[in-house]
């Protein structure tokens, strides 16, 4: 993933507070989600970063083939608890 294409909620060091902002665990400061990320960014497991995420459409919705039964999923879904997650 291109680092600069990300947003802060793509980073594992970001504790989301609401839809607009969160706490950066590196700096312990409140930051807006949609601002430039820094070099310390650590990729958050999300479907869009998983090799089992396929056939993505314009809405970033695709198919998950990583679990027992295939089903649709979306790129922004956080996958830290997903047993089928395989980082790209």
């Amino acid at each position: 993933m291109e680092k600069m294409n990300g947003k802060h909620d793509d980073c594992r060091n970001f504790a989301p507070v609401d839809a607009a902002k969160g706490i950066c665990r590196k700096t312990n400061t409140m930051i807006f989600t949609d601002t430039d990320v820094c070099d310390a960014m650590e990729m958050m497991p999300k479907c869009k970063n998983c090799s089992n995420f396929q056939g993505v459409d314009k809405d970033n919705i695709g198919t998950c083939v990583g679990l027992k039964k295939h089903g649709w999923t979306y790129g922004e879904l956080i996958a830290v608890t997903c047993e089928g997650y395989r980082q790209v």
Binding site: D18, D59, N60, Y74, E76
Partner: peptide
């Protein structure tokens, strides 16, 4: 409620 724009198509679906 605020919702991330990226999730709106998901909510509709």
């Amino acid at each position: 409620f605020g919702m991330r724009q990226e999730e709106i198509p998901v909510l509709t679906k």
